[in-house]
Structures are given as structure tokens and as C-alpha cells.
């Protein structure tokens, strides 16, 4: 009883986080089980694949013992979980690097790209939606209609190529689409893995300029493609709410226009949060075409490579990281969702 009243006394945001956070442990465990089984279920003997033509029954048996394949499935799973917890995801068959090292290098590249892309997507999508509802029939409204139609139809690689063609090739105002940072500039020491942030931490202005410049086009590409969907959905939600009784009543109460828009937007947040969370998780792998065009060296490219080369440890590592990332994104979505709408019971 006292525990309960103590619980109710906690601020709502804290209660939400405390109830949500522990859930990630069993979820992560489930993900590990699935990624483990994923590889076990694949046909073929990994030892044969690894040894190739030089396989002899003795070498196979030796490798099986080395890899622990002679033990039971559960023993293997326990060993796998143990390795994962120590950060050991195996060695990539293709790059011969430990998968962890590969991922540590590539995951921040993709994360930096899609984080900035999502921020720009939200700014562009929500602003367009709000302005086109508030100033109905205005220029922005008409533009948003055309854009909404086009954004769903134009593929991201094409947008990327157009931007490169016009802004780099013709106008020459943006840096070349080759990787995250200029070849002559040394990357800043890794702290967060985000070049823009790391270079600021290191006080390396040249690296910041270069990495920010390189980000410009791919971020723009992803934002242009994805802001359309977000804009359409925000517009529908916001429009309904902007016409609802309580907004009309706020107008009748003489609240200024800005306060009314803020209030309507605050009420439109839940679906926006959901869609942004979904896009975020989706882009982790789906940005692969844009990564390829801009030679980004991100996760998506790594995953595609792993699939093509039957590089199972790499693939397993990617799935694990991607699933963990999506879990975290959805956790944040859930928390924000409950914060945005007090009607949801904690």
C-alpha cells in the first residue's frame, strides 16, 4: 500500500520510463534467440563453407569442435549469448574483421545520416502540414499538394542522383558525394561516432565543415523522400484537430492564433511520434541505396554485402544491432507517446 502510494507520488514521466525500461531485457533476449536460430536454420554446414575445397573429414571435425558445433543447440545458444554479452559477434568471413569492429565503424555512419535526415524530415513535414492547414488555399497549401503526390512516387536514389547532378555537377556548391569526410581531412577521434559532433568535441573546425558538408546531400535526399509521407499524415491529423470543438472554443475564448496552433499541434503529436519512430527504424536498413550513391559506408551497405557473400556472422551481427536499435526507438516512441497523451494509462 505504501509502495503503491509512493509509486503514485512519482512524476508521471519517471513512472513511464521505469515501467518501460525493464521490458527491453526480455525483448533483447528474444532478439538474440531469433538471430541465433536464424543462422542455425540456414541450410548447409558452416564448416564446409569456411573450409571450402580444402575440407577433409578431420579438418571439418576439428573446426566443428573449435566452433562448438558438436555441442547441443542449447549449449551453443548459451555460448552465443555469452559471446554477445562480451561484445564478441564473431569474425566476418568477408572482411576478416571482427563483426563488432565492422559494426562499430559503420553503425555510427548510418545513425548520423538518418538522425539528421529525420530531424530535417520532421521540420519540413510538420511545418508544411501546419502552414498548409492554417493558410488553406495559400501557396504553401498548393505546393504541399503537388509535393505530397510527388514524394510518394519518386524513388530516393533518383532524388539523390538529381541533387548530385544539379548541386554538385552543375552548380558545384556542395562537396563530392564520396563518403563521410574529405579524403584529405582526418576523421576526428571517435567519441560518439558522429563526425559532426566528434569534430566539435575535438575542436577540429576543418573536419566539422567537411563532414557537415558531406552530410548535406544525403540528408536532403532522405528528407525530401520521407517528409512527404510525414506531411500527408500530419496534415490529415492536424486538419481534423484544427477544426475540432475545443480549438473552436479556444478561438471563441480569444486565444491568440499562435497559442491555438501550438495546442492543435500538441494534440496531433501521437501519430507523428509513431510515424517518425517507424521511419527511423525503417531507414536503418532502407537507406542503403542512398548510402551506396554517396559511398557512405553505412550499415545498409554492410548488410547487403553480407547477404551477397553468405557472410553469416556479419549478417547475424547486423540483425542484432538493427533489432536492438529498433527496440530502443520503439521504447522511446512508447515513452514519448505516453508523455504526449495524458489519457494513456501508465
Amino acid at each position: 500500500m505504501t509502495l503503491q502510494s509512493f509509486w503514485r507520488g512519482l512524476p508521471r514521466p519517471l513512472r513511464i520510463v521505469i515501467t518501460r525500461l525493464p521490458l527491453i531485457v526480455p525483448q533483447m533476449f528474444g532478439v538474440m534467440l531469433v538471430t541465433f536460430l536464424l543462422v542455425r536454420l540456414l541450410p548447409g554446414d558452416p564448416t564446409l563453407l569456411m573450409l571450402g575445397n580444402t575440407a577433409t573429414p578431420e579438418s571439418i571435425a576439428a573446426l566443428r569442435e573449435k566452433l562448438g558445433l558438436d555441442r547441443t543447440v542449447w549449449e551453443q545458444f548459451v555460448a552465443y549469448v555469452g559471446n554477445v554479452l562480451q561484445g564478441d559477434l564473431g569474425v566476418s568471413l568477408f572482411t576478416s574483421n571482427p563483426v563488432t569492429v565492422d559494426l562499430m565503424e559503420r553503425a555510427p555512419a548510418t545513425l548520423e545520416l538518418i538522425t539528421y535526415a529525420m530531424i530535417l524530415t520532421v521540420i519540413v513535414g510538420v511545418t508544411l502540414a501546419v502552414v498548409s492547414v492554417v493558410r488553406k488555399g495559400g501557396i504553401v497549401d498548393n505546393f504541399s499538394r503537388i509535393y505530397g503526390l510527388a514524394a510518394g512516387a519518386i524513388p530516393d536514389f533518383w532524388v539523390g542522383l538529381l541533387l548530385i547532378f544539379f548541386l554538385f555537377y552543375i552548380a558545384g556548391i556542395v562537396p563530392a558525394p564520396f563518403g563521410r569526410i574529405d579524403a584529405f581531412v582526418t576523421a576526428p577521434p571517435a567519441v560518439t561516432g558522429f563526425y559532426t559532433i566528434d569534430s566539435l568535441i575535438a575542436g577540429d573546425w576543418a573536419a566539422f565543415q567537411s563532414s557537415a558538408g558531406r552530410l548535406l546531400l544525403p540528408v536532403l535526399t532522405l528528407a525530401i523522400v520521407n517528409a512527404g509521407a510525414l506531411m500527408k499524415m500530419t496534415k490529415t491529423t492536424f486538419e481534423d484537430i484544427y477544426r475540432s470543438d475545443f480549438i473552436r472554443h479556444q478561438r471563441a475564448s480569444g486565444l491568440p492564433g499562435r497559442a491555438i496552433i501550438r495546442s492543435a499541434l500538441r494534440n496531433s503529436l501521437p501519430p507523428i511520434i509513431t510515424l517518425v519512430g517507424f521511419l527511423f527504424g525503417f531507414l536503418l536498413g532502407a537507406a542503403v541505396l542512398v548510402e551506396t550513391i554517396f559511398a557512405w559506408g553505412g550499415l545498409g551497405q554492410y548488410a547487403v554485402q553480407a547477404v551477397i557473400n553468405s557472410d553469416y556472422p556479419a549478417l547475424q551481427g547486423f540483425v542484432l544491432v538493427a533489432a536492438g536499435f529498433i527496440l530502443i526507438v520503439y521504447l522511446i516512441v512508447d515513452i514519448l507517446y505516453e508523455l504526449a497523451d495524458p489519457r494513456i494509462k501508465v
Binding site: S244, D245, F246, H249, A252, S253, G254, S263, R266
Partner: peptide
């Protein structure tokens, strides 16, 4: 007009629950 609404002439509508911002 904005200052008039609510400032000098106030309107009380039907179904109060729908007239209040649900998240504030």
C-alpha cells in the same frame, strides 16, 4: 475581435468535455 472574444463576450458551449484541450 480577438480581444472581444472571451474578453468582453464569452461563449459557453454544449458538451464541455469536447470544448477542453484533452492534453492540457
Amino acid at each position: 475581435k480577438r480581444e472581444l472574444r472571451g474578453g468582453q463576450i464569452a461563449l459557453i458551449g454544449t458538451n464541455a468535455k469536447a470544448l477542453l484541450d484533452p492534453v492540457e
